[in-house]
Design a protein around this nucleic acid. Structure first.
Lengths: 167, 167
DNA sequence: TCTATGTATGTAATATAATAACATGTCAAG
DNA sequence: CTTGACATGTTATTATATTACATACATAGA
């Protein structure tokens, strides 16, 4: 029996073995539903881009994605990848990791979330963990200065449990 | 009488009028002391780079800094700027703002701090505010996953008080 | 069904950001 | 006064991202 998909949405799953293919399938289905609900279109390039990002918990650069897309008959110029990626980010189906100039699939789209990213510098895995307390603290700090936050990025680089143990 | 320099180290100062030249002077003096204490050398390029960053509370791209340096007789190739900037970041005298691919001077070098950056999308001011609670919350989230944080970046984009009022 | 309109895709060219590799210069400890 | 570490200079290249414009495609209204 395959592992429950909740395993993949759970933040700790990123750093643990799990039935990732199953999770990816689940996310894709929800992506279909969400985009149509939003009046947006998950076209072939966009869908394929999401599938590529969903292949594992690593972040991919736009040019890596582009190479994959081009190999499959889509356009091979940068805007092809950037447009698809930007669309996914806009729809909350992917996230941009600024520290890596790269992108990851969102593992629980649709659910309201204020993501925080934990990036393993050894295996390059990226875990997306909900961090309401972190956001709350940030909001408090901003409010104290009269600053209005519109978007934010919170990223940490370090070692995941497995790589830490290995070292 | 000039305003106290503590005005500039205070986070709210970034978005308020203050005697910035005085603050910059103060930071420079502390930078001199800190680097010698660390056994590092605040050479002419490095010092000038810091001065340029200190001119205001905005973030500058490496190429903007380079242009300034080149105009003053320093080398005009990218590594000149990147090396100076990397040195300053290493020494804790400047910070890298990943969201902007840019750098800002640290307004309170030497003091232990876990900076959070508030970036105004209208006037491009960057405020560096201490945010121990934010870091603590982040650390808690990481620990829950067995993740060890080594470095992190926390950045928020939005509107500063003045620009918000103007809009 | 036709056609106008908005949206999506393709492509070329270019802008922007960052690094690699190597040569030269400087300074201070021995 | 020389050697070794560090700092700077320069050339070239790589990596990341955007602008501008042409073409295709879907769909709502005539």
């Amino acid at each position: 029996m395959t592992q429950s998909c909740s395993g993949c949405a759970a933040p700790e799953a990123a750093f643990a073995a799990h039935d990732h293919a199953h999770c990816a399938q689940d996310v894709l289905e929800r992506a279909d539903a969400l985009t149509t609900a939003m009046g947006a279109r998950l076209t072939p390039v966009r869908r394929r881009t999401l599938e590529i990002l969903l292949e594992d918990h690593r972040a991919m650069g736009a040019y890596d994605v582009l190479q994959r897309l081009a190999a499959e008959g889509f356009g091979n110029q940068p805007p092809v990848a950037y447009r698809a990626l930007d669309f996914l980010v806009d729809q909350g189906l992917a996230h941009r990791i600024r520290r890596l100039n790269a992108f990851t699939a969102c593992m629980h789209p649709g659910e309201a979330h204020a993501p925080v990213f934990l990036i393993c510098r050894a295996c390059n895995m990226v875990a997306e963990t909900p961090a309401t307390p972190v956001r709350a603290a940030l909001e408090t700090a901003a409010t104290a200065l009269g600053f209005t936050i519109e978007r934010s990025n919170i990223e940490a680089l370090g070692l995941c449990p497995a790589c830490r143990a290995a070292a």
